Measured scan of single mutants.
Amino acid sequence: ENVVSAPMPGKVLRVLVRVGDRVRVGQGLLVLEAMKMENEIPSPRDGVVKRILVKEGEIVDTGQPLIELG
Rank of each mutant, 00 (worst) to 15 (best):
L32T: 06
Q64Y: 05
E40L: 11
R51D: 02
A6T: 06
R24G: 09
V15L: 04
D46W: 13
E33H: 02
E68F: 13
G20L: 00
I67Q: 04
V60D: 15
E40K: 05
E1H: 15
D61P: 05
G70M: 13
V49Y: 12
K36H: 03
E38T: 05
E38G: 00
L16N: 09
M35W: 00
I52L: 09
V23I: 07
E56W: 06
G28F: 01
V17W: 10
R18I: 11
I67F: 07
V25I: 10
M35L: 10
V15E: 03
E68H: 15
D46M: 10
L53G: 00
G57F: 10
M35Y: 09
V60R: 10
V4S: 01
S43W: 01
K11T: 01
V60A: 03
N2I: 12
L53I: 08
Q27W: 07
V4F: 08
G10M: 00
N2P: 02
E33G: 06
N2G: 07
L53M: 07
N39Q: 02
R18N: 01
V15P: 04
I41D: 15
S5A: 09
N2F: 13
V19I: 01
P7F: 05
G70D: 06
P9W: 10
L13S: 00
M37K: 05
E68D: 10
I59R: 13
E33Y: 00
V48I: 10
G28W: 08
L16V: 08
E38S: 10
G26F: 04
D46F: 10
N2V: 08
V23E: 01
V17A: 05
P44W: 09
G57D: 02
K11P: 02
E56G: 02
A6S: 13
G26Q: 13
E33I: 02
P65I: 03
V4C: 14
D61F: 02
L16K: 12
V54F: 07
D46S: 07
G63I: 00
V19G: 07
G10P: 15
G28R: 11
K11C: 14
R45S: 04
E56Q: 12
K36T: 05
V12K: 15
V54R: 04
G28Q: 05
I67T: 04
R14K: 13
N39M: 04
K55F: 11
G47C: 14
L32G: 05
L29P: 15
E68V: 13
V49S: 11
N2D: 11
P42S: 06
E40R: 13
I41T: 06
K55Y: 03
E1P: 14
D61C: 14
R18K: 07
R51K: 13
V31D: 03
N2K: 11
D21H: 14
E40H: 07
K36E: 08
M37D: 12
P9G: 05
A34D: 09
R22F: 12
I59C: 14
V12A: 02
D21Y: 14
S43L: 08
Q27L: 10
R14V: 08
L69Q: 06
P9C: 14
P44I: 07
G20M: 01
G26T: 08
P44H: 11
M37C: 14
V3S: 04
V17K: 05
K50L: 11
P65C: 14
P7Q: 03
R45A: 04
E40Y: 11
K36V: 05
L16R: 01
K36G: 12
V48F: 10
R51L: 03
P7W: 05
E56H: 04
A6C: 15
V25C: 14
E58L: 02
K50G: 10
V48G: 07
V31I: 07
M8I: 02
M37Q: 01
D46V: 13
K11G: 06
R18T: 01
L53A: 00
G70K: 11
E58P: 03
G28V: 00
I52R: 03
E56I: 01
P7V: 13
G63P: 08
G57W: 04
R18Y: 11
D61R: 05
K36I: 07
G10L: 07
L69R: 14
G20E: 09
V49I: 00
K50N: 03
V23N: 06
P65H: 10
